[in-house]
Write a protein that binds this DNA or RNA. Structure first.
Lengths: 159, 159
DNA sequence: CGCTTGCTTGGAGTGCACTCCAAGTTCGTA
DNA sequence: TACGAACTTGGAGTGCACTCCAAGCAAGCG
């Protein structure tokens, strides 16, 4: 419910906006135009990767300065935040590009976007469950090693 | 504590055994020699991948029939179960090979193995936390789309 | 015995997600 | 204005984890 409070609330609901429900990107000094290396530093991707994301359509066409250099906006940063989260889920880049295309296509793709996110959410829940099973296995094996350390076959308790 | 009951309990603690704390592999009819395609069907890896695992040292040298064909044991199946779990964590194959080497090297590698598993466990906990954050973001965005559906910009409630 | 299916090997090929290169342009500061 | 750092592009290269191929051997069946 901590919705962006700095936003001009002229639109009530706009799901294609890049917001993730977290505070919008920290705007160090109210700026809204970042160079590629600044963005790389902020979001942890390389400049190479950012250019590549744009080339393949995973970024919604970044604005340019009058000399042709990229100038990323806070909105771009928010989008990259969402992309980063989706990437953590293991979603293939191609699927994220698909989502980006749907956003560009306009409001009539809301249902498909909704469906894509719901499916992804199920995947994430499944992965969490898998990881928790794995955690149990690791706990078991770590206990086993700890037990072996307490009861060594050749006692070396003094060493 | 549900340790293998079919095992000749001549060793009290044996961490390098492949057991994962779960029941040992279901032995359909008490067999202990499986062909490569049977193992592929059981553990969901391709025969190609199983051969590759052996080649790179991720399998502890599979036994052969008198004509040179692979014959996997229940113990191999259990090891593959552990490998599968570790793979789910995103652990690189090279690290799993390292673990397999430690197992082959003998008991004196217990501490390093223990450390490797503890580190992996921390990674897994971290990934679970990341995924849960991602889940929160997905919930937020899905809610947003659901709200957009309830309040469409061009009302089409009858359609 | 012949046929089909499955297994063996080393090595080559694939798909993904970057990651880097070369050659040229622009920015910021001394 | 000069200079090094940062930026631009298309295209090529890298590393990982498989995935497949070709040529040949082996097993079961009519």
């Amino acid at each position: 419910m901590t919705v962006t409070e700095t936003e001009t609330a002229d639109e009530a609901v706009e799901p294609d906006v890049c917001t993730t429900g977290e505070a919008p990107h920290p705007q160090p000094d109210g700026r809204d135009r970042y160079t590629i290396s600044e963005v790389a530093a902020i979001c942890g991707l390389s400049a190479h990767t950012l250019r590549w994301y744009e080339r393949i359509g995973l970024m919604p066409h970044v604005d340019r300065s009058h000399t042709g250099q990229r100038r990323f906006t806070n909105r771009d940063l928010d989008w990259l935040g969402l992309v980063g989260k989706l990437r953590l889920t293991g979603m293939p880049v191609a699927d994220m590009v698909r989502y980006a295309e749907l956003v560009r296509e306009g409001d009539h793709t809301f249902p498909e976007r909704h469906q894509l996110l719901v499916t992804t959410r199920e995947d994430v829940r499944h992965r969490i469950a898998e990881l928790q099973e794995t955690l149990a296995v690791l706990d078991f094996k770590i206990d086993t090693y700890a037990a072996a350390r307490r009861l060594p076959e050749r006692p070396e308790r003094t060493a």
